[in-house]
Design a protein around this nucleic acid. Structure first.
Length: 470
RNA sequence: GCCGCCAUCGUCUAGCGGCCCAGGACGAAGCGUUCUCAACGCUUAAAUCGGGGGUUCGAAUCCCCCUGGCGGCACCA
């Protein structure tokens, strides 16, 4: 049984777009193989906890349509799915390691550690724990524990040999043990560090494939050491790329919008975001008999041909411009009736469905984000207060008098206007532009006569009269 | 500094020893369509496949070195 997971930490505003990427891969891989996709909240750092973060993370996942089979709010056979609710477990397993001699108590205070680091830096050594507590005798430990001295539990990393693991995306990777620090497993506040938590939970929750970003590669040997110390079977490891800023550094909120909610508030469609993300380090392979290499595809199509091994280890730059293009593509291919509802919800029902329905066909091709509907259609709601370029009042007077007497239809409006232009001996386009400006104030708008029909005769004429009288 | 990962147009990528004087997409430029802007269609510019050595009849594709980019080195994840 394939079981994958993402383990977000509720320390940010919301789900990070990099996590969305990892979630997508985990989700698609699990579902392609009839497996389960799990969400586990790793809330073990109480100092960085952000209130509401967990809820927003889960809400974003739902909005994106990345459905999880097990998780904090849906439960599952291995509940609870929040590490803060599993403290006893970590303590028990940490103790097991101590008993096995694979971990040890450490009573060094933060001050001692700080000093240690300073000394090492002065000597140009790399900062590492000097293992002084590893040498403590049973009696000394007992004594300190009785005195209620604060302690952590550290992993006793072998001083010799190498730790090697296989990465499905990158092949064999190995690290020398002597360069691996004696990592803290259980903190003095009783919470586990990431390393203990992730290994214990992945094992207990029967995670078969650990798919995460490249930044975890260098801590994987610690995890491997833990699995071995416990005598547990290793999961399959696969480290995907980390998304980059345009300057190629690790994607960060300083240089790029990173929160899922930002994309939602901007009016990006979940399908477009997922499709765009799928293109990062992966591409739809040419199918037998139907080679295409399309860039626009659904998650279902992605599932059909997805293979973890095909993920490329190169860190791709996140290109907002291309996402924007893709979002426009998705908007254009969405049914009007559906899009209407999405816009309605997007603006929190501030605009009536009727209004959206009437104007949508005129602006759909011009929208790249849902949010743009508002500015693209603002002149329908509000007559222009200024004109981007001057209008020709004489010309407008002429059309006005003719159009007043007609019944309005697209054909009549166009024919009449063209005739007026002919009589005035001006280019139809120039006349149309004057009308456009009078009605909307803008040079760039949807097609003129469609616009007039949506605006309706009375309002259109009123605006024309205003333009003439100004 | 140490350890590790990576390396094809500006960006995302195709390419897995001959089909490649490297194909597609975004973006850019131009043209067409057209009442403006879009959308749409066509065209163009854009990578001496990071550099240098090998292997081979033949290398973007395999190997080595260098360089560069990125990541990690916390009682953060």
């Amino acid at each position: 049984m394939i079981r994958t997971r993402i383990a977000p930490s509720p320390t940010g505003e919301d789900l990070h777009i990099g996590n969305v990427y990892t979630a997508l891969i985990n989700y698609v891989f699990a579902k392609k193989n009839q497996g389960k996709f799990i969400i586990r909240i790793e809330d073990t750092d109480r100092t960085r906890l952000v209130p509401g973060s967990k809820e927003r993370i889960l809400a974003s996942l739902k909005w994106l349509g990345i459905n999880y089979d097990e998780g904090p709010d849906v439960g599952g056979p291995f509940a609870p799915y929040e590490q803060s609710k599993r403290l006893d477990l970590y303590k028990k397993y940490a103790q097991e390691l101590v008993d096995k001699g694979a971990a040890y108590y450490c009573f060094c205070t933060p001050e001692i550690l700080e000093q240690m680091r300073k000394d090492q830096q002065a000597k140009k050594e790399l900062p590492h724990y000097d293992q002084r507590c590893k040498k403590l005798s049973k009696a000394q430990i007992k004594d300190k524990l009785e005195k209620k001295e604060k302690y952590v539990i550290r992993l006793a990393v072998p001083s010799e040999g190498t730790t090697t693991f296989n990465d499905l995306i990158r092949g064999e990777i190995s690290f020398e043990n002597k360069l691996i620090d004696d990592q803290v497993l259980l903190k003095s506040d009783g919470y586990p560090t990431y390393h203990l938590g992730v290994v214990v939970d992945d094992h207990l929750m029967e995670i078969s494939h650990v798919i995460r970003a490249e930044e975890w590669i260098s801590s994987t040997p610690k995890h491997v050491l833990l699995y071995k110390a416990f005598g547990w079977t290793l999961p399959v490891f696969a480290h995907g790329p980390i998304l980059r800023n345009p300057d190629r550094s690790k994607l960060s909120k300083r240089k790029n919008p990173v929160w899922a909610s930002w994309y939602r508030e901007e009016g990006f469609l979940p399908e477009a975001i997922l499709n765009y993300l799928a293109l990062m380090g992966w591409s739809l392979p040419a199918q037998a008999g139907m080679p295409d290499g399309r860039e626009i595809f659904t998650i279902k199509e992605m599932m059909k041909s997805f293979r973890l091994e095909d993920i490329k280890p190169v860190g791709p730059a996140f290109d907002l411009t291309k996402l924007l293009w893709m979002n426009g593509e998705y908007i254009r291919k969405t049914q009007n009736s559906k899009l209407k509802g999405q816009i309605y919800e997007f603006f929190n029902k501030r605009y009536s469905k009727e209004e959206i329905e009437k104007t949508l066909p005129l602006v759909k091709d011009r929208m790249k984000k849902l949010s743009e509907w508002e500015s693209l259609t603002d002149f329908f709601r509000k007559a222009p207060t200024s004109y981007e370029i001057p209008v020709n009042k004489d010309h407008l007077k002429n059309v006005l008098t003719v159009l007043e007497k007609k019944d309005w239809s697209h054909e009549i409006l166009e024919q009449t206007s063209r005739k007026v232009a002919e009589e005035l001996k001006v280019k139809a386009g120039d006349l149309f532009m004057s009308i456009r400006i009078a009605l909307t104030g803008k040079k760039a708008t949807p097609p003129l006569f469609e616009t007039m029909l949506v605006l309706e005769k009375e309002e259109s004429l009123a605006r024309l009269k205003r333009a003439v009288s100004l």
